[in-house]
Computed example of a mutant assay.
Amino acid sequence: MRLDKFLSQQLGISRGLVSRELRAKRVTVQGEVIKDGAFKLEAHHQVAFDGNPLTQLSGPRYFMLNKPQGYVCSTDDPDHPTLLYFIDEPVAYKLHAAGRLDIDTTGLVLLTDDGQWSHRITSPKHHCEKTYLVELEQPLADNTAAMFAQGIQLHNEKTVTKPAQLQQIDSHRARLTISEGRYHQVKRMFAAVGNHVVALHRERIGAIVLDQTLEPGEYRPLTTQEIASVAVPR
Rank of each mutant, 00 (worst) to 15 (best):
E135Q: 13
V134M: 04
V134I: 01
L136N: 12
V109T: 05
K125L: 12
K130V: 09
I169W: 01
R120N: 07
K162W: 08
D142H: 10
I121C: 13
L154E: 10
G151V: 12
Q150A: 15
F148N: 08
R173A: 01
T105H: 05
I169N: 05
Q185H: 01
I121H: 11
R173P: 01
T177W: 04
D170T: 03
L111W: 04
S118D: 08
M189V: 00
A146C: 04
F148L: 15
Q153V: 07
E180Q: 05
E157G: 07
L136T: 10
P163A: 10
L176D: 09
H155Q: 14
W117V: 10
L110D: 06
R182V: 02
C128P: 00
Q167E: 14
Q167P: 00
Q167Y: 02
I152L: 10
Q185Y: 00
S179E: 09
A145F: 02
M189S: 03
G115A: 11
T112K: 04
R175I: 06
S179G: 03
L108A: 07
H126T: 13
G181I: 01
H172E: 02
N156H: 14
D142R: 11
G115F: 12
Y183H: 14
L133D: 12
H155C: 07
L108R: 07
T144K: 01
R182L: 02
E137Q: 12
Q150D: 12
Q153S: 15
T131N: 06
T105A: 13
T106I: 00
N143H: 12
V160C: 13
T177N: 05
I152K: 06
Q116V: 11
H127R: 13
C128Q: 14
L111H: 09
S118M: 08
K187A: 08
Q185D: 02
H119Y: 14
S123A: 15
P139R: 08
H184S: 03
K130R: 15
I169V: 15
T159R: 14
T144A: 11
I152M: 13
R173I: 00
V109W: 02
T177M: 06
H172C: 01
D113F: 05
Q153P: 09
D114G: 12
Q167T: 12
Q185R: 00
S171A: 14
S171C: 03
K162V: 04
G181T: 04
A141R: 11
L133F: 09
L140I: 15
E135G: 05
K162R: 14
V109K: 05
T177Y: 06
L136Q: 08
A149F: 06
K158V: 04
L176M: 07
L108V: 01
L176P: 10
S179D: 08
A145S: 14
Q167A: 07
K158G: 03
